[in-house]
Computed example of a mutant assay.
Amino acid sequence: MENQKEHFRHILLFYFCKGKNASQAHKKLCAVYGDEALKERQCQNWFAKFRSGDFSLKDEKRSGRPVEVDDALIKAIINSDCHSTTREIAEKLHVSHTCIENHLKQLGYIRKLDTWVPQELKESQLMQRISSCDLLKKRNENDPFLKRLITGDEKWVVYNNIKRKRSWSRPGELTQTTSKADIHQKKVLLSVWWDYKGIVYFEFLPPNRPINSDVYIEQLTKLNNAVEEKRPELTNRKGVVFHHDNARPHTSLVTWQKLMELGWDVLPHPPYSPDLAPSDYFLFRSLQNSLNGKNFNNDDDVKSYLIQFFANKNQKFFERGIMMLPERWQKVIDQNGQYITE
């Protein structure tokens, strides 16, 4: 390879002495050796060197850091601190950061933004997540209950849903800016409960009526009526298996008394675990994706949109959201309680 490079340079010097320019020399060389023989930019560089009076055809010895580096050392540094920059790795291994970038690319590493999680989990919280998931997984294996499961939650739906866009810019130019949605803007609070077949019951709360225990108990009564009407098989057989998160209105004493009165089997849910709540990891994510860029004029517009959104989802959609629970339980166990990030 080195001999071939030097051979090409002899040819370039020959054409330089014949009075040809770099472009002409490049065309003649490629006509004989193929288009990939030498880049035109390389020809131009060598011609510039010849014009300066330097007719040496060998590469100059390079000073500075060596470019050879053991991939295992790079992996070890990343495993010890996955936030290490290419320059930090280069300094530790005494090579150029360009060399590290090339090796990382060959190793298949890409740089990603950290994913936001609800909070840093303490060891006791990690153990609680593992314990809950193990319990639910084993219970479902012994007595499958997912087709009896009804789950629900609340979500604010704002009038103006801003969609952040990507834009092209040149190096050094400022990126385009987009204002975040005003947290005090008009919005509607959606409460929804669903199972593997679809929506069982949903409602919109008046703007100035927050969710508290009294409101939640009223909602549970309406939900029970909807279950008796839409899912009579649940009330006639083994009964409802109910899932909600640990929001204060959901865990108050009066709420527990109401749930006992209804006779529903309430599943345990570890604190700070939206990744184990089907509404959060599935239904609301799909809803928010559909809302991006949408603007509404009033509550009725929002409600009409949400009604249509739910109506357009078939049973397979809802079934997928519920039936992925065992896989997520196992994943939490495998990850020693850490959050599922996607």
Rank of each mutant, 00 (worst) to 15 (best):
L126R: 14
P66Y: 04
G53I: 01
L253W: 10
D134H: 11
E342R: 11
R231K: 05
I322N: 01
A247S: 07
K58S: 04
I77Q: 05
P278F: 13
F318I: 07
P66L: 03
G53L: 05
V227L: 07
L262M: 08
W193N: 01
I307H: 13
S290K: 14
R65G: 02
I217F: 09
I322G: 03
T86Q: 11
R209P: 07
R51M: 09
E203F: 07
V254S: 13
D71E: 15
R41K: 15
L253Q: 12
I130T: 05
K331H: 13
W264C: 00
L205C: 00
Q125P: 09
L291H: 05
Q106F: 07
L220F: 06
D299P: 09
C82F: 13
Y201H: 15
E36P: 07
K39M: 04
M260S: 12
F318N: 01
L276H: 04
F202D: 04
E141D: 15
E154F: 05
K105E: 15
C17R: 13
R62Q: 15
A247F: 06
N295E: 14
E229D: 12
W156K: 08
K180M: 12
F204M: 08
A247V: 02
I322A: 02
K331R: 12
N102Q: 14
R166H: 06
W194P: 03
N79V: 11
Q219P: 08
K58W: 04
R164E: 08
L189M: 15
I110G: 04
Q330H: 03
H26L: 06
F242R: 02
Y216T: 08
D195K: 01
W256Q: 14
S23A: 14
N246L: 03
N142I: 09
N314D: 15
V157N: 06
L29S: 01
G64P: 07
E101P: 01
S179D: 15
K180H: 10
K39P: 05
K163Y: 10
R231E: 00
V69E: 01
W46H: 09
A311C: 10
D143C: 13
S56M: 11
Q42S: 15
V240W: 00
T86F: 09
D275A: 01
R111N: 02
H10Y: 06
K230S: 13
T255C: 11
E228Q: 13
F310P: 04
C17W: 08
E60Q: 14
D214K: 15
R9D: 04
Y216Q: 06
E233W: 07
K20H: 14
K316G: 00
G293H: 03
R328K: 04
L223M: 13
V188P: 00
T177R: 13
G337C: 02
K28Q: 13
P270H: 09
L223D: 02
C17S: 08
V32T: 14
D153W: 09
I333W: 07
P278H: 09
H26M: 03
R129C: 02
Q257R: 14
S169N: 07
L93F: 03
I150D: 03
F318M: 03
